[in-house]
Amino acid sequence: MSSCRAVLSETERSAGLGGGDEIPVSAAPASPTIMTPEPRVPCLEVRGVSKTFRDGGQIVHALDRVSFAAYPGEFITIIGPSGSGKSTLFNIITGLTEPDEGEIVLECGVVRRRAGRVGYMPQRDLLLPWRTVLNNVILGPELDGRSRREARRRARELLPLFGLEGFENAFPETLSGGMRQRAALLRTFLTDREVLLLDEPFGALDALTRRELQRWLLGVWERFRKTILFITHDVEEAVYLADRVLVFSGRPGRIVKELRVDLPRPRQAISLLSEDLRRHEAELLAALEAANGHAPSGETK
């Protein structure tokens, strides 16, 4: 496993971040940001994945021959109607579910055990109710057998940014929905995986916090060259964050459009009213509408 994880992108190596795991966020030097990832070996490849659920008499075609590749350091957002199999795709990539057809290739090739190879933030926050916020967010390092103290130290540094300062000893049940979501995001980030799968991470946030965390995520992504797959229902968010937007059709989910967003980076300072942004959004919206209009019914009795 470690040999696979060791395959880091060139940028990272040249920036002296080869250690990857143990670098505290604040101490990392600002690396030169390279905007467009050159076509290299993809760190994640989804090949012709189909999935059908049979639940009693009901058959649900969730995914239909979905294929795409994510290259190191790429930021991909996925957008599509509700129930189009986006979460199912993430479950397949993390190895919780096996596809009916197709395969997942992670860095070294098709591996049998995919669990633990990518960082996954599910749609439900799924914090452990018996752990405080601080102990929840260090779950990743703890499962890897890394030092808990070091993990706690890093977590404490990041708590203010996530608006969780002062809540490190609170239990999840006493937090608001958005705070729980932020805690779940922090937990995912602290797993220190190269590939992060984020399932609607900012769904329950107010506009201001959402904007702030989007900026933070872009910052982290640029600094550490993570590869991010990001599901969202928000057109603006999809365009603002991504190198590429994958548009899913209604059930059965398939990729109906791939939109390249060639806005300059870093985008943290970009105006939300910028002409380019609006143009991309309009294009994406049109694609979504087209996908919904032709959405074939996937259910058969």
Partner: peptide, 8 residues
């Protein structure tokens, strides 16, 4: 499931 996905 989440713990399993995290490699536990």
């Amino acid at each position: 499931s989440l713990l399993r996905a995290m490699g536990a």
